[in-house]
C-alpha cells in the first residue's frame, strides 16, 4: 500500500491556529471580561442584600446588624484617594498627571485614579478632572476596572476625595456620555467646586466616554 503524505498546511491550520486564536480569546476573557463579570455580580449581590434584606452581608439576614455610616472614614486610601460607597471604589489618586501624555497617565492608572494636571485640586474651586479605567487587559488585578461601575452612580450619591490627608465630600449631580473629542466640559466655568470622573464606555472599548459630575458639599 502506497503511503500518501499529508500537506503541512492543514496541520498548522487545524492544530496550531485554533490554539493561538483560543489562547488570545481566553487572555481577553480572563483579563477584561471576567473582572467585569465579577464586579457586576458583586454589585448586584450587594444591591439585593441592601434592597431586599436591608443588610450589607449574608450574615446580616439572620443576625441583626448595627450599621454605622462612617461617611468614608473606613476607606483605605485616606491620604490621597477616592472612596465611592455605592460602587465600592476605594482607590489611590495620583495627583497632577498630564492627560496629554499617554505614557505618564498609563503608568499612573496602574496605581489608581489619575487627577489631570492643571485642573482644580480639592478645596480650590473650579473643576477637578479625574479619570480611570473601566476595563484594561493589564493584569493589575485591583485597578483594571476601577471605574467600571461608574455608570451605576445616580444624582445624590456620595463621593469622598482625600487630598494630603484632608477629606472632601461631593454629591453626584449629573452623568453623561460624550465623544472622546468632546472636551467642552473643561472650558466651562463652575460656580461650585466640582469634580468630574471619567472612564471609557461601553466596557471593553474606547468608543465613548462616561462623565460623572459631582459638586462639593459641606459635611
Amino acid at each position: 500500500m502506497k503511503h500518501i503524505s499529508r500537506p503541512n498546511i492543514p496541520r498548522f491550520a487545524f492544530f496550531i491556529l485554533p490554539i493561538l486564536f483560543l489562547g488570545f480569546s481566553l487572555y481577553w476573557f480572563a483579563t477584561v471580561f471576567l473582572p467585569v463579570v465579577f464586579l457586576e455580580t458583586q454589585y448586584q449581590y450587594r444591591q439585593v442584600l441592601l434592597e431586599v434584606f436591608h443588610t450589607t452581608s449574608l450574615r446580616g439576614i439572620f443576625i441583626p446588624e448595627f450599621r454605622v455610616d462612617l461617611r468614608g472614614r473606613a476607606a483605605q486610601h485616606n491620604v490621597n484617594g477616592i472612596y465611592i460607597p455605592k460602587v465600592q471604589v476605594d482607590a489611590e489618586i495620583i495627583y497632577n498627571v498630564d492627560p496629554n501624555d499617554q505614557n505618564a497617565y498609563t503608568a499612573a492608572l496602574k496605581k489608581g485614579i489619575a487627577h489631570a494636571s492643571g485642573t482644580a485640586l480639592p478645596d480650590s474651586g473650579g473643576l477637578g478632572y479625574y479619570f480611570a479605567h473601566s476595563t484594561t487587559p493589564n493584569l493589575v488585578a485591583q485597578y483594571n476596572a476601577v471605574f467600571y461601575l461608574l455608570g451605576k452612580l445616580e444624582k445624590g450619591d456620595d463621593v469622598f476625595v482625600w487630598h494630603q490627608g484632608k477629606r472632601f465630600m461631593y454629591k453626584v449631580t449629573e452623568k453623561s456620555l460624550t465623544d472622546p473629542s468632546d472636551v467642552s466640559f473643561l472650558q466651562k466655568t463652575y460656580e461650585e467646586e466640582t469634580i468630574v470622573l471619567q472612564t471609557c464606555w461601553p466596557p471593553g472599548t474606547t468608543v465613548k466616554r462616561m462623565l460623572v459630575f459631582a459638586e462639593r458639599v459641606e459635611e
Binding site: L17, P18, I19, L20, F21, L22, F24, S25, L26, Y27, W28, F29, V32, D98, P99, N100, Q102, Y105, L109, A114, A116, S117, G118, F131, A132, H133, S134, T135, T136, P137, F147, T178, P180, S181, D182, V183, L186, Q198, T199, C200, W201, P203, G204, T205, T206, V207, R209
Partner: peptide, 29 residues
C-alpha cells in the same frame, strides 16, 4: 501651570479593536 489644551479625553478602556479581535479569534478558534 497648564498643560497643552486637551483635545481628546484620555483612553481609559480596552482598545475596541482588541476586544473585537479577541471575540473574533474565539469564534475562529
Amino acid at each position: 501651570v497648564n498643560t497643552k489644551p486637551l483635545t481628546q479625553q484620555p483612553k481609559t478602556g480596552t482598545p475596541t479593536l482588541l476586544t473585537l479581535g479577541a471575540i473574533g479569534s474565539g469564534f475562529m478558534g
